[in-house]
Nucleic acid binder design. Structure first.
Length: 890
RNA sequence: GCCCCAGUGGCGGAAUGGUAGACGCGACAGACUCAAAAUCUGUUGUCCGCGAGGGCGUGCUGGUUCGAGUCCGGCCUGGGGCACCA
C-alpha cells in the first residue's frame, strides 16, 4: 500500500518555495493587493498545535487570494516584550533577551515546519532597538500633540517584594510570590489620551461591518458612553459642593443617600478624624485594582458623617457614604443613590436601612410606600421581592419595591409630577431626564453631561523587559525633558540583575544617570517601560516597510493598508484592537498619513482545547506520567488515581499541551493543517484528539493514492474538451464544478470545515468514477486537477507534489489560477421536492426544475402516503414553494 | 456584580424559516490476510413494527408561522472578558 512520504515531500517543497523566493512580495500598482495578518505571537517557548490554528487559517486565505490573482502580503513577527521573560529570568537566571531570542529562534523553526507562506524578509521582533526606537519617536510626537501625559494612578502593590503586580499576579487578593495581602498604591504614571477619541472610536464602529457583531458590541460597551447629568450637592456646614454623575437625573426625587469612592478626596479628608473610616478605606484598597474584584465583593459602605443637601428639597439632607462599589475612575467618583430604581443602590439601602422612595412606576398601577406595604398580606409582600408589579387580592394592580428595583424605562407615572417640575403626570423616562436637567441648570445645581466608561490608557510599567519611555527628569528642578529624536533609541542596558524584586532599571548602578539634553545638568532617566500593547498597536504598519528609517514608509502603507483580513483570538476583542484603532488616529493627529481604521475585516478564531488529566488532589498530570494499573488510570510515580478532566485551552500549567513539532514529525504538516481546519468552524473551539489526527492522516493518504493511481490514463494537461463524454463523465464534471463554486463561497465565509466536507465528497466522486470510454479520461483529469487545486491552500506540500504528478512539471500549484466554474454545469434538470401534510414530511417527489405550481400540487396530492395522511379530509390550503416543498394543510 | 458567547446522535459538527443529522470520528458486521496492521464494502438518532410504515427527537418553556434547530419572550446549564497576562 503506497503511503505518502510526507517528510520528503514537506522538505522538498519548502526548499523549492524558499529557493524561488515565492513568498517575497513588493508593492505592485498593477495588481490588487491583499494584506492577510495573523496576530503575532508572544515568543513564550515552544509552539503547540493551538498556536498553529491561527497561522493555518491565515495561510489558507493567503494562498487562496494569491490563486485569485491578488498581490498578497503575509508577514510574521514577534510580540517579544513581556512579563514571562522576566519571570524566566528570575526563575532560571537567564537574561530576558537571551531567553526571548532563543524562543524566537525555536518557534521560527517550528513555524517553518508548517510551510506557511510568510515573507520572512519582513520578520520583526518588537524587543529589538530597530523596532522600538520608532515607537519612542512616535511617543515624542504624542507628547508634543498633548496625547501623552503624566498623572497619579493606582497599582497593585506587593508590600513584601516592594513591587507592582499585574492583576494576573494577584491571587485571591495576595501576591503570587510572597502571599502578602496586596494593597492599592498610587504612582505617577504615563497615559495616552485615548479618551480624546472616545466619540470617534465609538461612532466608527458602525463602519466596521466586516467585524463580528460581538466584537463590535464589546468595543461599544467598553467605550461605554453614558448620557446623563452631573449634579452639585451643597454639603451641610461646608463651603464646597459634592459633584456626582448620574444617568438617571429623573430619579433625583428618590435619592436617599450619596456614595463616594473610598479614594474620593472628601472621603480621604474625612478619614483624618475618623479611624474607622480610615480602616474602611484600607479594606477597599486591599480589593486590588481589577473591576471584577471590586464589583463582586459584597457591597459595603461607611457613613462619613457628611450630609448633602437635596438640590430641589432644601429640607432633605442625604447621608454621604464611602462605598466599595463606587469607582474613582468613572464619572466623578461619586453617585447619588436612588434605591427604588437601581438594584445595587437598593441592596445597599436595605443593608443600611435607608429610605426606598419610588418616583416612577407603570402608569396604571397604584404605588405603595414601605409603610403601606407593611400592612399587606405576607404572600403579596413576598411577591414584591421578585417583581415590583403584582395583582392584589381585589384584582387591583399595585406597585411596591421590595428587594427588586424597578429600572424599566418607558412611559411612567412620576411621583409629584417630578417634584412639580412639570405639569404632566405621565412622562417617558427620556422626557423626564430632559426636564430634570433643565431644572438643574436653572437652579445652578448641575448640567447635562456625557461620561465614558473608557479611561485613558495607562502605559507605564515598572519592569525591565519593555520599551524604555524616552524622557529624563532634571535633578535640580525635577522638570521632565523629552529625549531628542537624534538620541534615540534609548536602549535597555544588558547588564541587569533579577536576584532582587523590583524594577532592575531603577536599581541599575549607572543607566538612569544621564544629563539633561537642554542644559547638560544631571538628570535621571524615566525607568518605567511601556505596556507591551504599545508595540502591538502599530506593528501592522511596520510590516509594510520593515527596514524603513522612519516608523513606516507612507508609500508602502498607502499601498498595503488597511489590513484586509486580520485573524486572532477573541481575547483581543477589546484592548489590542481598540488600542490599534486609537493609534492610527493619534498618528494622524500628529501628521502621519494613515487610514483611520487599521483592520478592514476581522475574524476571531476559537481556542484549541485538549483533554486534561488530574489526580483527586487536583494535580495536573502529563499523559506520559500515567499508566494503567488494575484497569484504572494512575500516576506512575505514586499510584495515585488519575481522572480525565474537562477540556481546557492548551497550557503548560494544565499539562495538556500537544507539541507541534511531534505532530508534524509524526504525520506531516499537511495532516496537522487539515485537522486544524476540518474539525470545527474557525470561530468555535476545536478539540485536539488522537482520532482526529488519524482521520486526517487517512485522508492525506487516500488523496495521494487517488491522484497517483488514476483509474485510466489521463490526457496531457491542456487538452481541449473532447466529444463523446459518457453520462458518468458528465456527472463527474457537474460534481467538480459544483464543488468549485461551493468551496469558493466557503472560503470567502471562513467555512473551512464545510469546504473540506465538500472536498471529501468530490474525492469520493473521483474515486468511484468508472470511465466508460476513451474520452472520459478528460473528465477525470478535470476533476482531479480541481480537487488538487482546491485542497492546495489547506495541504500545500502534498498538493504541489500531486500537481507535479498530474504533469505540471514547470509551474507550481502555488501560482496556478483558481478553477473557473462553468455555470451551465451547475443547473440540474430535476429537483427533489418534499411533501408535507400539516408540516410533517410524508413523501418526496422528483420533479422537473421550475415545474408549474399546479403540477407540483397535483402530483403531491396523488401520493399514496399523502392521501393516507390526509385521512379523507379535503385540503384546506396547499402551499407550494417551487423546487423545495409542498405543504398540504387539512 | 456587569458585559458577551454557546447548547443538535456515542463524539466533532452540517442545515438562505422549507426533507434535521451533510462530512468526519467512533462502534458493529463483512471482504482481503496464516494472523495482525493497513485498505475496501455495508449498517449506525431513538422507540414500535416481519414489513409497508408510524411515534418521538436540536438544553427547558411559552409564542409567531402553512411550516421553527433557525425568529420573538421567559428560564436553565456551560464557557469567555472586565483595563498591569499576551
Amino acid at each position: 500500500m503506497a503511503r505518502y512520504a510526507f517528510k520528503d515531500v514537506d522538505r522538498k517543497w519548502q526548499q523549492i518555495w524558499a529557493d524561488r523566493g515565492s513568498f517575497r512580495v513588493a508593492e505592485d500598482a498593477a495588481r490588487p493587493k491583499y494584506y492577510v495578518l495573523e496576530m503575532f505571537p508572544y515568543p513564550s517557548g515552544r509552539l503547540h498545535v493551538g498556536h498553529a490554528r491561527n497561522y493555518t487559517i491565515g495561510d489558507v486565505l493567503a494562498r487562496y487570494k494569491r490563486a485569485k490573482g491578488f498581490n498578497v502580503l503575509h508577514p510574521m513577527g514577534w510580540d517579544a516584550f513581556g512579563l514571562p521573560a522576566e519571570n524566566a529570568a528570575m526563575a532560571n537566571k537567564v537574561h530576558p533577551a537571551v531567553w526571548t531570542e532563543e524562543n524566537i529562534r525555536v518557534m521560527g523553526e517550528q513555524l517553518r515546519l508548517l510551510g506557511l507562506s510568510y515573507d520572512w524578509g519582513r520578520e520583526i521582533a518588537t524587543c529589538r532597538p530597530d523596532y522600538y526606537r520608532h515607537e519612542q519617536k512616535m511617543f515624542l510626537d504624542f507628547l508634543k500633540a498633548g496625547l501623552a501625559y503624566r498623572r497619579e494612578s493606582w497599582v497593585n502593590w506587593d508590600p513584601v517584594d516592594h513591587t507592582v503586580l499585574a492583576n494576573e499576579q494577584v491571587i485571591d487578593g495576595r501576591g503570587w510570590r510572597t502571599g502578602a495581602v496586596v494593597e492599592r498604591r498610587k504612582l505617577t504614571q504615563w497615559f495616552l489620551r485615548i479618551t480624546a477619541f472616545a466619540d470617534e472610536l465609538l461612532a466608527a464602529i458602525e463602519t466596521l461591518d466586516e467585524w463580528p457583531d460581538r466584537v463590535r458590541l464589546m468595543q461599544e460597551n467598553w467605550i461605554g458612553k453614558s448620557v446623563g447629568a452631573t449634579m452639585l450637592f451643597d454639603l451641610v456646614g461646608r463651603d464646597d459642593r459634592l459633584e456626582v454623575f448620574t444617568t438617571r437625573p429623573d430619579t433625583i426625587f428618590g435619592a436617599s443617600f450619596c456614595a463616594l469612592a473610598a479614594d474620593h478626596p472628601l472621603v480621604l479628608s474625612a478619614a483624618e478624624g475618623d479611624a474607622g473610616l480610615a480602616a474602611f478605606i484600607a479594606e477597599c484598597r486591599a480589593l486590588g485594582t481589577s473591576e471584577a474584584a471590586i464589583e463582586t465583593a459584597e457591597k459595603r459602605g461607611y457613613d462619613t458623617g457628611l450630609r448633602a443637601r437635596h438640590p430641589f428639597l432644601p429640607d432633605v439632607e442625604l447621608p454621604v457614604y464611602a462605598a466599595n462599589f463606587v469607582l474613582m475612575d468613572y464619572g466623578t467618583g461619586a453617585i447619588f443613590g436612588c434605591p427604588a430604581h437601581d438594584q445595587r443602590d437598593l441592596d445597599f439601602a436595605r443593608k443600611y436601612s435607608l429610605a426606598v422612595i419610588p418616583v416612577l412606576w407603570p402608569q396604571t398601577h397604584r404605588c405603595y410606600s414601605d409603610a403601606e406595604a407593611a400592612d399587606l398580606p405576607e404572600s403579596l409582600r413576598a411577591a414584591f421581592d421578585g417583581d415590583p408589579v403584582q395583582t392584589a387580592a381585589d384584582g387591583a394592580t399595585v406597585f411596591h419595591v421590595g428587594t427588586t428595583a424597578y429600572s424599566d424605562t418607558g412611559l411612567a407615572a412620576y411621583r409629584y409630577n417630578l417634584g412639580h417640575l412639570t405639569d404632566k403626570p405621565v412622562l417617558s423616562v427620556a422626557e423626564a431626564k430632559a426636564i430634570a436637567i433643565a431644572a438643574l441648570e436653572k437652579a445652578d445645581a448641575g448640567t447635562g453631561a456625557v461620561t465614558f466608561r473608557l479611561r485613558d490608557w495607562g502605559v507605564s510599567r515598572q519592569r525591565y523587559w519593555g520599551c524604555p519611555i524616552p524622557v529624563v527628569y532634571r535633578v535640580s528642578d525635577g522638570v521632565m525633558v523629552p529625549v531628542p529624536e537624534d538620541q534615540l533609541p534609548v536602549a535597555l542596558p544588558d547588564d541587569v540583575e533579577f536576584d532582587k524584586p523590583g524594577n532592575p532599571l531603577d536599581r541599575h548602578p549607572t543607566w538612569k544617570h544621564t544629563t539633561c539634553p537642554e542644559t547638560g545638568e544631571p538628570a535621571l532617566r524615566e525607568t518605567d517601560t511601556f505596556d507591551t500593547f504599545v508595540e502591538s498597536s502599530w506593528y501592522f504598519l511596520r510590516f509594510c516597510s520593515p527596514d524603513s528609517d522612519v516608523p513606516f514608509d507612507e508609500a508602502a502603507t498607502g499601498y498595503w493598508m488597511p489590513v484586509d483580513q486580520y485573524i486572532g483570538g477573541i481575547e483581543h476583542a477589546v484592548l489590542h484592537l481598540l488600542y490599534s484603532r486609537f493609534f492610527t488616529r493619534a498618528l494622524k493627529a500628529c501628521g502621519y498619513r494613515v487610514a483611520d481604521e487599521p483592520f478592514a475585516r476581522l475574524m476571531t478564531q476559537g481556542m484549541v482545547v485538549h483533554e486534561t488529566l488530574q489526580t483527586a488532589g487536583g494535580d495536573w498530570v502529563y499523559p506520559e506520567e500515567t499508566g494503567e494499573r488494575d484497569g484504572a488510570l494512575v500516576r506512575l510515580a505514586d499510584g495515585a488515581p488519575v481522572t480525565r478532566g474537562r477540556l481546557e485551552k492548551m497550557s503548560k500549567s494544565k499539562k495538556n499541551v500537544v507539541g507541534l513539532e511531534a505532530m508534524v514529525d509524526g504525520y506531516g504538516a499537511d495532516t496537522v493543517r487539515l485537522l486544524l481546519l476540518s474539525d470545527s468552524p474557525p470561530e468555535r473551539d476545536l478539540e485536539w484528539t488522537e482520532a482526529g489526527i488519524e482521520g486526517a492522516w487517512r485522508y492525506a493518504n487516500r488523496l495521494f493514492r487517488l491522484i497517483t493511481e488514476p483509474a485510466v490514463d489521463l490526457p496531457p494537461p491542456g487538452t481541449p474538451l473532447p466529444d463523446g463524454l459518457s453520462a458518468a463523465a458528465q456527472s463527474l464534471r457537474a460534481l467538480a464544478h459544483k464543488t468549485v463554486a461551493a468551496v469558493d463561497a466557503d472560503f470567502a465565509g471562513f467555512r473551512f470545515n464545510r469546504a473540506i466536507a465538500r472536498l471529501r465528497e468530490l474525492t469520493t466522486g473521483v474515486a468511484e468514477f468508472a470511465p466508460q470510454g476513451p474520452a472520459d479520461g478528460w473528465a477525470l483529469r478535470e476533476a482531479s486537477e480541481a480537487l488538487v487545486r482546491l485542497v492546495g491552500p489547506m495541504m500545500p506540500h502534498l498538493c504541489e507534489e500531486l500537481w507535479q504528478h498530474l504533469g505540471h512539471a514547470d509551474t507550481l500549484l502555488l501560482d496556478a489560477p483558481w478553477p473557473e466554474v462553468d455555470l451551465a454545469l451547475l443547473a440540474e434538470d430535476t429537483v427533489t421536492v418534499a411533501v408535507q401534510v400539516n408540516g410533517k414530511l410524508r413523501a418526496t417527489l422528483t420533479l422537473p426544475r421550475d415545474v408549474d405550481k399546479a403540477v407540483a400540487e397535483e402530483q403531491a396530492l396523488a401520493e399514496d402516503n399523502v392521501v393516507r395522511a390526509m385521512a379523507g379530509k379535503p385540503p384546506r390550503k396547499v402551499i407550494v414553494v417551487p423546487n423545495r416543498i409542498v405543504n398540504v394543510v387539512v
